[in-house]
Design a protein around this nucleic acid. Structure first.
Length: 661
DNA sequence: AAGTCCCACGTC
DNA sequence: ACGTGGGACTTC
């Protein structure tokens, strides 16, 4: 009996939507021993001359294709770098967003590094990886949550919104981290102890630093892997290869870590899912949260969304019963003091725009420890305007807004950085500039005068700072860049609430609450957190430490207005013709409506709104239209022989940018 | 995207 | 009758 000839089903790496599917190739006898799902191959495409890269997805003996099969051109390497569970995830999230699985795979598999790969293959051949017993892991205690609840949830593969404890804790080695990091690390130990991996996604390197520190306190270093954008490509590739092994690992990283290989996955935990850094800016724009939800469904692992506040998306999932909630065993609310703008009593406090309550709290706290001052923007004067007509000053080169970085520096563009030496107003020909607003630098200078003799520390994008000590100091930081103070801040002043709320976005409210809650969580227990100049529902939600109530109220509004995430949206951009056809293709679907189309700089744009239940149908229909637009014959302009550019159609799901309240 | 086939038109 | 150039078509 002869064994049937193997056929490799290959995902060809191409940006073309019509090629985003499997192609079947005969496997030459010489390659039969080398191919397996996940290996990189080179394949002929269309004609002998053209060779494309691809991944073997399956090896089968029978296929539906009736034509003559081409043969694989070459096996690039025998390392199975594209894991089957990653293929399934890429396909599913791409389908959900009417995008290409290839685009997701490009995010999921780092660029090949030959040396790194050879070294990995060599250790694998030795049997080293699997033969050596992995360092043992015991489940760490999840103090502050009801006994065993989180551990049980992981064992049972439950899905939860987890309310983080707003405290700073000291690790055994003395490092200070947010309590959330220790909770996430402890959850990871439960996953690993049960024989499964844990994927831990955080928005930025600052959070990653805390999480890694917390993990190192409870896990052997051999069980921790990081995969993030700041790594060099060889490091990233090495980490990727490590994830392919059989040893359960804690895999830490930023948004793309949800696509890391992890065969026996026991837990996905996402920290602060409302942070915009969790939104993937590359097509098909899959958010960490959505990828995590899809992957949980496919692999049946536990899923936690941890946060000091709650995104409206997670609140929706809680309300429909898709996610449960896990809260700390007792109340850990920070002591929040909302303060309307009051006339400051101290002259210097007036200059520094600090109301008297805040000034008194800061002064008292500075006797014993550090005080955090959160502001909206970095630099000295974040914005400049014409002193004559008041119009915002813009850059001559790129039209970006001008600002100054220090009290003495030349005004410069905040986008392109070019100095604006001899500025004249585009509106009235005025030449004098007026400073608008106060950034970290100016606030620090003003506070230095209001609190003479006190050490002032600045932390913002230009001056990153992760930690400050427990000695008295004024720490002026932009939102999201706040350092952790040893033992917690003795007072926290949230200064620019009004300014932050002035931003035009559907998410201002939840963003502000997230920024304030994350800053409040850095306070020492019982230390005052003064929210300046903001009242209403947001101030109440922060003061009562019930951010989920705010999210729930926000969701009520979004339902009334049919705004995301009450419904889903797809932004459809293209030519008048392609957009019209795309809209026609979904016209019959119940629960879908269309805003537009209207003309924009990027072409004709329409926004489709639809219920979650219609998501698959909408995505499928729009995907078909994308392929149709990409393969449509070029049309000839009557009378001319020049072909028009290919008709294009772009579709982006769940982008809230177009929605402004 | 890009190689190949094919048809139409042009020239001898 | 034969050459060639631009488009349409397809990718296992």
């Amino acid at each position: 009996m002869t064994t049937p000839a193997p056929i490799a089903r290959v995902m060809v790496d191409s940006p073309l939507p019509q090629l985003d599917r499997l192609f079947d190739y005969a496997v030459p006898a010489a390659m039969a021993g080398e191919i397996a799902p996940g290996v990189r191959v080179r394949v002929p495409l269309r004609s002998a001359g053209r060779i494309a890269d691809g991944f073997v997805i399956e090896v089968v003996t029978e296929v539906d294709y009736t034509g003559v099969l081409s043969e694989l051109d070459a096996v690039v390497s025998t390392a199975p770098v594209l894991a089957p569970e990653v293929v399934a995830l890429a396909r599913a999230v791409a389908d959900r967003a009417a995008g290409s699985a290839n685009d997701v795979i490009r995010l999921a598999v780092p660029k090949r590094q030959v040396r790194v790969e050879k070294a990995w293959l060599a250790t694998r051949a030795d049997g080293e990886g699997d033969a050596a017993a992995p360092d043992p892991v015991g489940p760490a205690e999840l103090a502050d949550y009801p006994a065993d609840r989180l551990g049980q949830a992981i064992a049972d593969g439950e899905k939860h919104a987890v309310d983080a404890v707003p405290r700073v804790v000291a690790l055994p080695d003395g490092r200070q981290v947010g309590h959330w990091a220790t909770a996430m690390a402890a959850a990871a130990t439960h996953a690993l102890a049960s024989g499964g991996s844990a994927i831990l996604s955080v928005p930025d390197y600052r959070d990653q630093e805390q999480l890694v520190a917390a993990l190192e306190a409870v896990l052997p270093a051999s069980r921790i892997v990081h995969l993030d954008a700041r790594q060099s490509n060889p490091d990233r590739y090495r980490a990727h290869l490590d994830c392919l092994g059989q040893t359960p690992l804690a895999i830490v990283g930023n948004r793309s870590v949800v696509f890391a290989p992890a065969a026996r996955l026991a837990l996905i935990a996402v920290w602060d899912d409302g942070d915009p850094l969790h939104a993937e800016p590359l097509s098909p724009y899959v958010h960490t949260r959505d990828a995590a939800l899809v992957r949980q469904q496919q692999q049946g692992c536990a899923l936690f969304f941890l946060g000091h506040s709650r995104s409206t998306e997670v609140e929706r999932l809680v309300e429909i019963g898709y996610l449960g909630t896990l809260s700390p065993a007792r109340n850990y609310s920070p002591k929040v003091v909302p303060t309307a703008q009051q006339a400051p009593q101290d002259r210097y406090a007036a200059i520094a725009r600090i109301p008297s309550t805040a000034w008194r709290e800061a002064k008292a706290a500075l006797a014993t420890g550090p005080v955090l001052v959160q502001v909206a923007r970095p630099g000295f004067a974040p914005r400049l305007a014409c002193d004559d007509c008041g119009q915002s000053a813009r850059c001559r080169h790129c039209d970006g807004p001008l600002g100054t970085k220090t009290s003495s520096s030349v005004p410069a563009c905040t986008w392109c950085g070019k100095p604006a030496a001899a500025w004249t107003c585009g509106n009235c020909d005025g030449t004098r500039l007026r400073q608008i607003g106060q950034g970290t630098v100016r606030t620090a200078e003003d506070l230095g005068r209001a609190f003479p003799g006190v050490r002032v520390i600045i932390a913002d994008g230009d001056r990153p700072l992760l930690h400050v000590d427990a000695a008295p100091a004024l720490v002026v930081a932009t939102r999201g860049a706040e350092p952790i103070a040893a033992g917690g801040y003795h007072a926290v002043l949230l200064l620019d609430g009004e300014r932050m709320l002035a931003r035009e976005s559907l998410r201002v409210g939840e963003d502000c609450l997230r920024w304030w809650a994350n800053a409040a969580a850095l306070a020492k227990p019982g230390a005052p957190v003064v929210l300046v100049g903001v009242g209403g529902a947001l101030a109440t939600a922060l003061a009562t430490w019930r951010p989920q109530s705010y999210a729930a109220a926000e969701l009520v509004d979004r339902r009334r207005l049919r705004f995301p995430p009450a419904i889903r949206v797809a932004t459809v951009t293209g030519t008048a013709e392609t957009v019209e056809k795309a809209l026609a293709s979904i016209a019959g679907l119940a629960g879908a409506d269309v805003l537009g189309p209207l003309d924009t700089d990027a072409g004709v744009r329409a926004i489709v709104r639809f219920d979650y239940a219609q998501g698959a149908a909408v995505a499928q229909a729009l995907r078909a239209e994308i392929i149709r637009a990409a393969t449509a014959r070029r049309k000839r302009v009557p009378g001319k022989s020049i072909p028009l550019a290919l008709p294009t159609l772009k579709v982006r799901f769940d982008d809230i940018e177009p929605f402004i309240e």
